[in-house]
Structures are given as C-alpha cells and as structure tokens.
Nucleic acid binder design. Structure first.
Lengths: 114, 114
DNA sequence: CCAGTCTACCTCGCAAGGTGATGGGAAGGA
DNA sequence: TCCTTCCCATCACCTTGCGAGGTAGACTGG
C-alpha cells in the first residue's frame, strides 16, 4: 500500500469505522488489518495522533472502560459533529476520486480493476 | 479540494497526462485547471519538484524546445519505465480506493456519488 | 523608452501526516 | 522469572503540497 496515498484518508476511515459503534485503538488496528486481509496495517503512530485530533475537534469522544480482568481500554465514539464532518469528507473524497480517475481514464475506458 | 487527499496522487496525474503526449509545466497547470473546471489548481511548488523527481527516476524525460517567438519551453515526455510505473500506480490506486470505500460503505450501499 | 502583464521556469520555508522506533504498563502462560 | 500479547502513547524523520519569492523574455500601452 502506497503510504502517500493514505494521507488525508485516515479521518474518513476512522470516522466510518466508528459509525458502526465505539471502538478502542487496538481494536481499530486489528479491524483494519482483518478487513483488508492484511494489506493495510494502520500504524499506532498514525492512529493515536489522528484519534486525538479528531477528539480535540469534538468529532469523536472517548471514555475509559474497565474490562472484567481489570484492564482499562479507551473507547472512542463518534459525535453528531463527527457524522456531519464525515459526510462532508465523503463528498470531498468522491470529488477527489472522480477527479483523479478523470485523468487516468480520460477516454472513458472500462477501468483497470484487478 | 482537500490537499492532504492529493498527496501521492500527483505522480499518477502527471504520468497519465503525459501519456496523451509531451507537455510543458505551464501547460500542465492550465490543462488540469480546465479539466477540473477550476476545481483544482496544480501549484507550481508541487508540480516542478514532482516533475523533477519523476525525471530523476527516469520515468519521464525532458527537452527544451524553442518556439517561433524565440522563447524556450521545457517539454516532458513519458518513458517506457514511466508507463510501467503508471500501471503499477493505477493498480495501487484502485486497491486504495476500494479499501477506503470498503470502510465508507461496509454494507454495500450504492455509493454516494453526487 | 518604460511600466505592466503574461508566459514560463524554478526554489525555499513551513505545515501536515505517516513511518519506524521506542517506551510504559498490565495480564497470562511456560 | 521471562516472554508474549494487549493497550496506550510520543518522538525524530521523511515526503509532499502550499504560499511566497525570484528570474526572465515577449508583448502591449503610454
């Protein structure tokens, strides 16, 4: 996976994931790993700063939850402002993808999937 | 346009454009502007370094051409290695887009075009 | 002739985001 | 006890895009 391509898409990924329900950091990493069949390992150095930034912007909130074994986990949940932001980001994302694909396939070829 | 989303996609744009034929810097900027209906202005500070990097990697070559009025323009043309690289990049791009959209629309909705 | 604008090239400092390394700490098995 | 797994987090470094600044020739208007 080309890392430069990822830049800017992490908030969308995170917010989209949290739309399905609250998750904690480690869980997010594992989920991404599983869903991409190992193709993309979300790094901790990318995840936590992104999460903290999203929280600072009040797009998500966090709370510590103690498990049965006594360990604490920090869960993140999406806030209404986060959903709004996600929708806006999704629109930007579509625009962006359409733009790039407009250059990649200017004649309207069938696409090079696979 | 979200600039963070752009990171890493510039080489694809450039190489794709050059697939249509040799172009010079200023022309590339104008072409991108026109084709996106003014939505995306490729900045010189992004374009020239990217072009030079692509040339250093031998994915494109450049040559100066004098116009009728005596002015010189530096044209860039894609090389075979550049085409190969473009194909690889396009595959990565598809993978990347599919991955992100896999998170954005995990239930398999129809997509949020428009 | 001079000023302003357009074409056309390029570089530099800065900000943002991902990577890899590093570190802390607790639970659980060998 | 030691090692691994789980779980949090930060930091230096690198790459890339942006905004600003710089050079220079050609054309237009005064």
């Amino acid at each position: 996976m080309d890392r430069e391509l990822l830049k800017g898409s992490t908030p969308i990924l995170l917010l989209s994931l949290l739309t399905e329900g609250p998750m904690y950091g480690y869980q997010i990493i594992e989920t991404v790993l599983e869903r991409t069949n190992g193709a993309y390992t979300l790094k901790e150095g990318a995840l936590y700063p992104a999460l903290h930034k999203l929280e600072a912007a009040e797009f998500i909130s966090s709370y510590w939850q103690t498990q049965a074994n006594g360990r604490d986990r920090r869960y993140y949940a999406i806030l209404p402002a986060g959903s709004t932001f996600l929708e806006a980001k999704k629109k930007q994302w579509s625009l962006f993808v359409n733009m790039v694909e407009g250059f990649v396939t200017p004649n309207g070829s069938t696409g090079s999937k696979g």
